[in-house]
């Protein structure tokens, strides 16, 4: 799905990165634990999270994720938005809860990573 389709599907408002909405992502990553994101995230993923602090942006940057959607109407502060702009990330926010957002995106073609075995993480690319 393109980020544009995602924002339409989950009624998300784009906070920053308007120009990158044609970017395609394949994987949905729903998490409020940044170590989880660091361990499993893939570059062509969008991160859905209920946290809106600066560490989410740093985590996405380090994990090569370029799109973040905050759920339940969460919105980061101005400084965090600026940081995301610097790092070239797309930020959006939806009023929908996590469960509903995942449901709609899954139905429209985003996938997870399938069955994970915790001892075989995918950090090796």
């Amino acid at each position: 799905m393109t980020l544009e389709e995602i924002s339409r599907t989950i009624e998300a408002e784009v906070i920053t990165g308007q120009d990158s909405l044609k970017t395609e992502v394949r994987i949905g990553c729903a998490s409020d634990l940044m170590s989880d994101v660091l361990a499993f995230a893939k570059p062509d993923a969008i991160l859905l999270t209920g946290l809106a602090n600066r560490q989410v942006v740093y985590t996405a940057d380090v994990a090569d994720i370029h799109a973040i959607c905050f759920i339940r109407g969460k919105r980061p502060d101005e400084e965090t938005i600026k940081l995301a702009e610097q790092k070239g990330q797309v930020l959006m926010t939806t009023r929908l809860p996590m469960f509903v957002s995942c449901g709609r995106l899954f139905k429209n073609g985003l996938t997870g990573l399938g069955y994970l075995d915790i001892s075989k993480r995918n950090d090796r690319g």
């Binding site: 994987i27 949905g28 990553c29 729903a30 998490s31 499993f40 859905l48 996590m98 469960f99 509903v100 995942c102 449901g103 709609r104 995106l105 899954f106 139905k107 985003l110 996938t111 997870g112 990573l113 399938g114 069955y115 994970l116």
Partner: peptide, 11 residues
């Protein structure tokens, strides 16, 4: 499975 997929499948 990851949270995203389980939530998707529950829906």
């Amino acid at each position: 499975l990851q949270a995203f997929e389980i939530a998707g499948r529950l829906c």
